[in-house]
Amino acid sequence: MSEEKCCSCCSTDSKDPVIGEYVCYCNHVTEQDIIEAIENGALTVKDVIDKTGAMKNSNCAVNNPKGVCCYSDIVYVFNKHMENTKL
């Protein structure tokens, strides 16, 4: 996957997604928000980010309990739900 990363904090890629209350803590984006973005026409991770406002004004080291960028979690949730829509 060659999605362009959208924030400066994406230098650390987490291999183990841990989805809590939010997928993007900086902007309070939930898994349901991502699902709704897909249902409303988001076809790429960038579309999801644009539709949900995820990763805007990121301060992941402070806001995300994992202390890393949420990009890999957004990708994980996006892929999980895109696969479900193809079934």
Results as ranks from 00 to 15, higher is better:
3 E>L: 07
4 E>R: 05
5 K>S: 03
6 C>K: 14
8 S>I: 15
8 S>Q: 06
8 S>Y: 00
8 S>W: 10
10 C>G: 02
10 C>S: 14
11 S>Y: 04
11 S>Q: 00
11 S>M: 11
13 D>V: 09
13 D>S: 14
14 S>E: 05
15 K>R: 14
17 P>N: 08
17 P>F: 04
18 V>P: 07
18 V>K: 13
19 I>W: 10
19 I>A: 13
20 G>H: 07
20 G>R: 10
21 E>T: 05
22 Y>F: 15
23 V>W: 05
23 V>Q: 14
24 C>Q: 04
25 Y>P: 13
25 Y>W: 15
26 C>G: 10
27 N>D: 11
27 N>H: 05
28 H>C: 12
29 V>F: 01
29 V>G: 11
32 Q>K: 07
33 D>S: 04
33 D>G: 08
35 I>K: 04
37 A>V: 01
37 A>N: 01
38 I>S: 12
43 L>E: 15
44 T>H: 04
44 T>Y: 06
45 V>Y: 03
48 V>T: 10
49 I>D: 00
52 T>D: 09
53 G>R: 00
53 G>D: 08
54 A>S: 15
54 A>C: 12
55 M>L: 15
56 K>S: 12
57 N>Y: 05
57 N>K: 08
58 S>W: 01
58 S>K: 00
61 A>G: 14
63 N>L: 12
64 N>G: 12
69 C>F: 01
70 C>M: 15
70 C>S: 15
71 Y>H: 09
71 Y>M: 11
72 S>Y: 01
73 D>A: 14
76 Y>F: 15
77 V>K: 00
78 F>H: 00
79 N>T: 06
81 H>K: 06
82 M>D: 12
83 E>T: 11
83 E>Y: 04
83 E>I: 12
83 E>Q: 11
85 T>A: 08
87 L>G: 03
87 L>V: 06
